[in-house]
């Protein structure tokens, strides 16, 4: 079961944080098709956020076809996100690249800035 962590100071809308964290869990394989998402009650009890925010996030995920609500049962994952699983070749390459960057004397912020700028170049205009 996924646990959401809400950062009120991030400036990112709360429902977007839930959507992003769910997708992240799907990418990392922490959530798989058939898994049940926590109920709105469980989420708001742990995070003290507005129930409508959770419902809005779940509707958004449903709209994207990632999850489906089954009446009286809960919300279930329909499909995973087809990105590299944790042991894929792409991840191994990135892993090796990070080692080299560190050896070259780059610190975390440098790597972060470099990575973001490359992402911006290649994925400009894509929906997040």
């Amino acid at each position: 079961m996924i646990e959401y962590r809400i950062d009120r100071r991030s400036g990112v809308a709360t429902y977007v944080q839930i959507v992003q964290q769910t997708k992240q869990a799907l990418r990392l394989g922490l959530l798989e098709p058939g898994d049940k998402l926590p109920t709105a009650r469980e989420v708001v009890e742990a995070t003290a956020i507005n129930p409508n925010t959770v419902l809005k996030a779940y509707r958004e995920l449903e709209r994207e076809g990632l999850v489906e609500a089954r009446r009286g049962l809960g919300t279930f994952v329909r499909r995973g996100l087809n990105t590299a699983p944790a042991d894929s070749p792409l991840r191994a390459e990135l892993d090796a690249w990070a080692v080299r960057a560190r050896e070259a004397g780059l610190d975390r912020d440098d790597v972060d800035a470099l990575f973001t700028s490359v992402l911006d170049t290649h994925f400009k205009g894509d929906p997040s």
């Binding site: 809400i6 009120r8 709360t14 109920t39 709105a40 009650r41 469980e42 708001v44 009890e45 995070t47 003290a48 956020i49 507005n50 129930p51 925010t53 959770v54």
Partner: peptide, 25 residues
């Protein structure tokens, strides 16, 4: 409070002079 609102559909009206505690809920 939010769990009860989620489960029973209770409408909640709460007053506060501390805005930070309301953000998100």
């Amino acid at each position: 409070l939010m769990a009860d609102a989620a489960e029973h559909g209770t409408t909640v009206v709460m007053s506060s002079h501390v805005v930070a505690e309301l953000e998100g809920s």
